[in-house]
């Protein structure tokens, strides 16, 4: 299953590193990353494969939320299909 991780917040050093570190720790493979910084607002979107993740979706979400708290950003992880169904016909 593929999921989308979004990170939104104020730009600080090492956000990408910290999120990637969490992914690596649980065997979550990062497939694609895009990021943009608009007037100090950081928005990063990652497409990840969680098929081989060694923890469940809940635990992964919890850990990413912790990273969000530490970096002052808001992190969501959601099933890819929600975006596909909403924005693609």
């Amino acid at each position: 299953m593929k999921a989308i991780i979004t990170v939104i917040g104020k730009d600080t050093i090492g956000i990408l590193a910290k999120v990637s570190e969490t992914c690596a720790k649980y065997d979550v493979n990062i497939i694609e990353v895009t990021q943009s910084v608009l007037q100090d607002m950081f928005a990063m979107i990652m497409l990840v494969d969680i098929e081989k993740s060694i923890v469940g979706f809940d635990k992964l979400k919890e850990n990413l939320n912790e990273v969000g708290d530490k970096t002052g950003t808001k992190i969501h992880i959601m099933h890819e299909d929600i975006f596909n169904s909403m924005h693609k016909i």
Binding site: I4, T6, L47, I82
Partner: peptide, 12 residues
């Protein structure tokens, strides 16, 4: 890949 603006729209 999905477009950033679409993803952010859904989250918003």
């Amino acid at each position: 890949m999905l477009e950033t603006k679409d993803i952010l729209e859904t989250i918003n």
